[in-house]
Design a protein around this nucleic acid. Structure first.
Lengths: 232, 232
DNA sequence: TCCAAAAATTAGCCTGCGCTAACCTTAAAT
DNA sequence: ATTTAAGGTTAGCGCAGGCTAATTTTTGGA
């Protein structure tokens, strides 16, 4: 394990290859391309570090040397990424179901643990947890992307329409404050809500949750996917 | 996390500082001194590596520069070791109770995971698991050493005496084959048994388990602690 | 007491994986 | 068309933490 060495036990400061792979997988899946600069931000390393890591990863066959429009995962890389992501999501479910950890804390905890799950353990977890198709935040397991069909960003829902929150995108999970906010407001998978108004110019959007109203910035709202066609 | 880099996912090859601390803690607790050469064997690194690591660990206040008779853990070091060991043992219980992993497989799995447990998670685990005093192999949690009072190595039991297996020492857990053997023979905490005969010259010892008899080498038998004074 | 084995240490080397600083592209914006 | 900004890369550096080989202690017999 990456290590500070000092008598402190801070969050892992240096991303592993698996961390790179996971993030790249999601980027490729949802945005079609992998931008090193974005990766550097998300993993909290310098852009130069990403470049060096790409070299090693290409050498080790996780990545294809860029074939026009940036790098891409190899099949091996994609498989490895899927594997960590599965372990991540299963760990999250274990934390939620067995240890009653609230979902705004599962991401970080699971992130530490996921690297340490053996294939056998993964299988036992899957059984214990009833072979889930999405993580506690509603993100699909690799291979189960179809279940998200029909879920759209909250920003695309017309005013007045009733919807059900289905998914908080994994990139929102990188911001603990945002996640905490959402959970505190009761915005989580399964919540019924309705768009009250949008203010396109200042990029804000207000929704109703039961009695109360909550205003979200667009960046946050774009990470919230909802199911439409909810008959009143 | 320590990492091979290559598309393989083998057991962690390089021990962490926490791994050093755990092993040193147990050595000091049960043998009174820390021998670098033994440590090197147990951690699968070269003796020279241990020497270098000791330097860094002294610098970082985990160890006292040797005060005659080898190095010793500082209070900080001992506390850190206790902490990992607790997390290790709680993880083992989680694996055993929730995921039904057999105890000859829990050690390695837990070893990977233990480094990734936060204090909050540790607390939730302790609650979920009912505040155990020993690990699934019967080794005491740091601070609960008294529960092992009265448990003696199997090698010290006179022929003919009935005893109950209580503990498989942690150093035996480093040998998966031994542990598997013990579990297959039904030798685990709680098993009733009786010493049939000892052959001190070839260092062998035979015990009865239910109908069948099992012969153990002394090295193995020294790792088995039993409770005497079991009224027939 | 002396010697051989065991234990410990030092030196020199390697890789992984961060960092900053400086330097290229490319593409959009004046 | 030129400028600026964003993205990407290279070079040079640091530390953690392995390794072997070659010493130098220690220590426990004979």
């Amino acid at each position: 394990m990456p290590h500070t060495g000092k008598p402190e036990n801070q969050p892992r400061p240096t991303p592993t290859v698996e961390d790179y792979l996971m993030t790249m997988y999601v980027m490729e899946r949802d945005y079609g391309e992998i931008i090193a600069a974005r990766l550097a931000e998300m993993l909290n390393v310098a852009p130069a570090t990403v470049a060096m890591t790409f070299r090693r990863m290409e050498r080790d066959q996780w990545l294809t040397g860029k074939g026009r429009h940036g790098v891409h995962l190899t099949e091996t890389g994609r498989a490895a990424a899927s594997s960590v992501i599965r372990r991540h999501m299963l760990t999250e479910w274990l934390l939620v179901k067995v240890l009653k950890v609230p979902i705004h804390k599962t991401h970080d905890e699971a992130h530490n643990i996921e690297h340490a799950i053996s294939p056998e353990l993964e299988e036992r977890m899957r059984e214990s947890l009833g072979d889930p198709q999405v993580c506690p935040h509603g993100n699909p397991f690799p291979g189960a992307e179809e279940v998200t069909r029909g879920w759209v960003p909250l920003t695309e829902v017309p005013v007045g329409e009733k919807v059900v929150v289905r998914r908080i995108h994994e990139f929102a999970e990188n911001s603990p404050e945002l996640l905490t906010f959402l959970v505190e407001q009761g915005i989580l998978p399964g919540s019924q809500t309705e768009v009250i108004e949008t203010l396109p110019f200042n990029q804000t959007l207000t929704i109703r949750l039961g009695e109360k109203q909550v205003t979200l910035g667009y960046p946050a709202a774009r990470f919230l996917f909802v199911e439409r066609a909810v008959s009143a």
